[in-house]
Design a protein around this nucleic acid. Structure first.
Lengths: 162, 162
DNA sequence: ATCGAATATTTTAAGTTCGAAATATTTTCG
DNA sequence: CGAAAATATTTCGAACTTAAAATATTCGAT
């Protein structure tokens, strides 16, 4: 370790924050996936149902962009939700290229039941941090997340997009 | 709790932090994946090469636990790395159930070249936060990430595990 | 010594994800 | 109008992921 300095203090600080960020996100994701598995949903499926529930019926393109996933991917997710009778595709009347995705009554009932449980789990998970810590965290993560994503970006982000 | 309160202040604070966390992690992941794609690697492959580079040859089980992925999954990742000539499997002499994964010289050269670029990108990405903000972030995320993961957990976490 | 439990890895089946190419349908504009 | 560009979705090929079952090997307790 003569002089090379594989990690300056400056560098280690960022790399450490990076790892913590990835691990926290993965832990959260694993917890969610496990909880949803019992209900027969994947994270993506839950995210789609939740968006439709809170924002109403929308086109696949629109839904894909809310969920930060590719349109190709959303086709699969909607395929599976439709197969399970939770959503319904309706050809758009004004633009027949497009398809609008609607919750079925079964789908609505399911997400109505699941969402509060999900929210409660998140609140619980974050309760290890105090209110001010949560705010500071949001602020910092918000600035980080806002940086340009040249590419597409993927996300299963749910939660109240107020 | 008072009455219905779909979103108490308390609840919104946590849900907001949750979304920010997911988005930040996804943005980061997308940036990385895009950069690695140009080099013909996936995030998982990069993570495996990096662990082998910094920690030396190891068993698949060990590697899987470093990368927080399932052993079954690691089989696939190593299959592909081996096919591309970046790693080599060697049957363990002391325990012939096990396999030790080694970097080939090609693999070593590749990760030697890629890692500094990757680290620099991370440092750059985090430079939107000041040193103290980075430390606070790490601290908070560390506490969050430490909470029990009953299930397996998945991660592509790379980055200098010093 | 040997039988059964534990461990390391692989296989299998199902599902998510992406990018790129293909299809269908507007929309634009010459 | 009609061809070209843009848009919405789907299809295709490849990689990753997991859980569960299958193999191979070692370890442990009788």
């Amino acid at each position: 370790m003569g002089t090379k300095h594989q990690g300056s203090e400056h560098e280690l600080r960022a790399l450490n924050a990076y790892i913590k960020l990835r691990r926290a996100a993965n832990t959260l994701s694993a917890l969610e996936a496990a909880s949803l598995r019992d209900d027969g949903l994947t994270e993506s499926q839950f995210g789609a149902l939740e968006a439709l529930f809170h924002l109403g019926p929308m086109r696949q393109t629109e839904l894909a962009s809310k969920l930060l996933c590719s349109p190709a991917n959303l086709t699969t997710v909607v395929d599976n939700l439709e197969r399970d009778g939770l959503v319904e595709r309706r050809r758009s009347e004004d633009d027949r290229r497009a398809v609008t995705v609607h919750l079925t009554s079964v789908g609505r009932k399911l997400i109505e039941e699941l969402f509060p449980r999900h929210a409660a789990a998140i609140v619980d998970w974050f309760s290890i941090l105090g209110p001010d810590e949560q705010l500071d965290l949001s602020e910092a993560l918000g600035r980080l997340g806002k940086q340009e994503t040249t590419t597409h970006g993927r996300d299963r982000g749910h939660g109240g997009q107020k």
